[in-house]
Design a protein around this nucleic acid. Sequence first.
RNA 1: GCGAGGGUGGCGGAACCGGCAGACGCGCGGGUCUUAGAAGCCCGUUCCGAAAGGAGUGCGGGUUCGACUCCCGCCCCUCGCACCA
Length: 862
Amino acid sequence: MTRKYDFKTIESRWQDHWTALRLFSAGRRPHLPKFYALVMFPYPSGTLHVGHGRNYIIGDALARYKMMKGFDVLTPMGWDAFGLPAENAAIEAARREGQAIHPRDYTLGNVRVMKTQIGAWGVGYDWEREIASCHPGYYKWTQWLFLKLLENKLAYKKQAPVNWCPGCQTVLANEQVEEDGTCDRCSTAVVPKNLEQWYFRITRYAERLLDDLDKLEDWPERVLTMQEAWIGRSEGAEIVFRVTGTEETLKVFTTRADTLFGVTFVVVAPEHPIVAKLAARLPEGDRTRVSDFVSRCRAQKSIQRTAAGDKEGVSLGATVTHPLSGEQVALWTADYALMDFGTGAVMGVPAHDQRDFLFARKYGFPVKIVIQPQGAPLDAATMDRAFEEGGVQVRSGEFDALPNDFGRSKITAALAAKDAGGPVVTFRLRDWLISRQRYWGAPIPIVNCPNCGAVPVPEEDLPVLLPHAADFRPRGQSPLAAVTEWVNTRCPRCEDPARRETDTMDTFVDSAWYFLRYISPRSTDRIYDTEQVNHWLPVDQYIGGAEHATKHLIYSRFITKFLYDIEFADFEEPFAKLFAQGLICADAHKCPEHGWVPAAEVAEGRHSCGQTVMTELHKMSKSKRNGVGPEELIAEYGADTVRLYTLFIGPPERDAIWNTKDIIGAHRFLYRVWETVQEALPRLSPPGAGTAEGLPEEIRAVRRKVHQTIRKVTEEIEGGFKFNTAVAAVMEMVNELKRVTAWEAGGGALREACETLVLLLAPFVPHMAEELWEHLGHTGTIFERPWPAFDPAVAAEEEIEVPVQVNGKVRSRVRVPAGATDEEVRAAAMRDGKVQEALAGRVPLKVIVVPRRMVNFVIPGP
RNA sequence: GCGAGGGUGGCGGAACCGGCAGACGCGCGGGUCUUAGAAGCCCGUUCCGAAAGGAGUGCGGGUUCGACUCCCGCCCCUCGCACCA
């Protein structure tokens, strides 16, 4: 009597078993080398769909594989639990039902649901280390980090124009503003606003963040390039121009100091402080013209930058003195000069910079050529675009005739000698704005005192607790400002009445260090146990979405480097390897009347309201309503099937298309595996009996396949998590196994095949693997069994099939012993009937034998 | 515009240090079992062709005995960056 594949019973049984066993508790097998497998912790947004599942399943398969490979695995999970959506949900509920859900309740409710979902997938974590960034025990240390940064002059406050979102009623970081100048959450047009804000001085780490990218060999190339571009190092020169007739000097930044003699004007950003100073000296009409222009730019800037479009500017009615030639050139302000890059001032070289060229043509500045290319020389009168390539210096005084690369360093040196500038490196990376005028975040641990200014809350007074009761409707300042009993406090320094800082921190601060907290999740007297952190970190494998390339991943690297600097860590990079998995897409349906509608409401291209829907492929998301829930699928096919399909769907680093109907394939396969093992059970040799000598070819062939499959699956996992092809390899093996007709004498080989099959599948379909492993007569969990090893001698082919080409076309195939010499292979090919026919008596001009691969006869004529 | 990745059957995808294109799965067709259906199981399934054979990896060229794979020139899709001086 064989047992049925009752996945429901099996799955709940083993999930309970793993919990009882504490299978995922790190440090359970401390004699083994450590492996820290980390999946990015999620924002608890509600319910998970199968797209989220991919992340967890990949991580879980890896963790289980590593256990079998003999590692003490740490695989923790937690919640990035602060953030706007919880607050928005509270506000939304208040508006709809007249009763607000507290962000904490909303968040914790979501956590409960998601935790259950993760468990149902059979994904295991060391839940004893669970953390939530909104827990006071956690954010105490986020605040501590803030104080440490402040202490090291890496946190500071400044009044600055910020991106203000009228929809969310808060400032946004540069990264949260979309290209078109809208908020990345609510798509409202962002407006500039002047506010006093807290920043982290990440720019001080720019050079190291860039240089150390070289150490991250196992990061995807695209993420490295994105970070490189984001940090944006550019080497150039600062050049000082005197503003004629004033004491003012003006610094410009350029990467093309070689073109200095081609300057025919200088422009500054509209926000540049010199604009107001010079405008004040202008006659009324001109002054208004300048201030109108400036305010227009300010408004326009964050709404829509005229990317590479029409450039506008206005004269500041002043000239500046060329530092080397002494020439006078006009000083203007223009919208294409950016205040937050370089010095906010640009030297205009129309002949050699396309933007300057367009500007000059528009406003009539001369074009002065100072670099001439080899061959056809340029003519200022007729050129229709700037010449930006290399050449030879001309009309550049003593630098004439130098190649411009050389001229560049010579001119820079000459400036330095005259104290009028010198070499300088600038970065595109900006300091990190961390203030948020919202409730649901970690309070910034600062007290603003009328006498002492901004005073840090003493470490022993942490955490600064977020008051529970608050009206979180945004009103342009943090909701905390209205909680008077919380805001009003005493200055820690002078004890006079003072007010707390009412802004909270950007949630990216919370997530910039969570991977360290897992090591000592309940530590109350220090951020973590340094010794333990140095044992477990860096993370051996980090898994998550590539969308975090320039935010979370840079911030985490920055914080880690800072902790290294203050001797809280002996490593500088937190994540040794990074795997960026692709997203799952599915059809999304848009009804002209109801917008995005779930697939369940769509039949035959029509929404339930009768309207024809538009269907297109999108990443699974709440907003597109195309997320597929795991529950029904798990109920129908089991978690193992859903896991297997998810892994099989395609190359994990690429986006994939979810097709629920394809799941049946994974299910059928598992069913076959089950049946195969059940049917084999009565014929098996006892465990550990080994395989007999002198087996028939049919059995030897199966053993060969088994060992080849071990090799293949291992290589596919190790070489980049290619679970899709690893699963395919196991499917092939099962297909072959099913073909065997006579197992007599093969009891040992059959046991080897079944055990290998179950072991190889264990990381992918852990419940079934555990169950079958037990049926095969074993006790204890399969995840403490070693991963199978392959025997190259068994895996080696005895006989191979070699295709035979005549003039590059395959005409036949011959079977030869694996060790056959080229000559033997050639002879065998020559004897083949079909080859004879194709040769038709002609003598080959040439015979190419590629060992084990191919024979090609080259014959003359058609 | 710049950078990265990609384009292979009806579909998802394999193979790519140059050597059997289409592994594996879905779907589809046929068969078997069944009172019937579903699920299984077996066979087939790139296209054209009755077959022999021919064509075929986005398009056009090239190198080679041999090209999905390498080189040159294009087209299209996805993502990232984009007035960064």
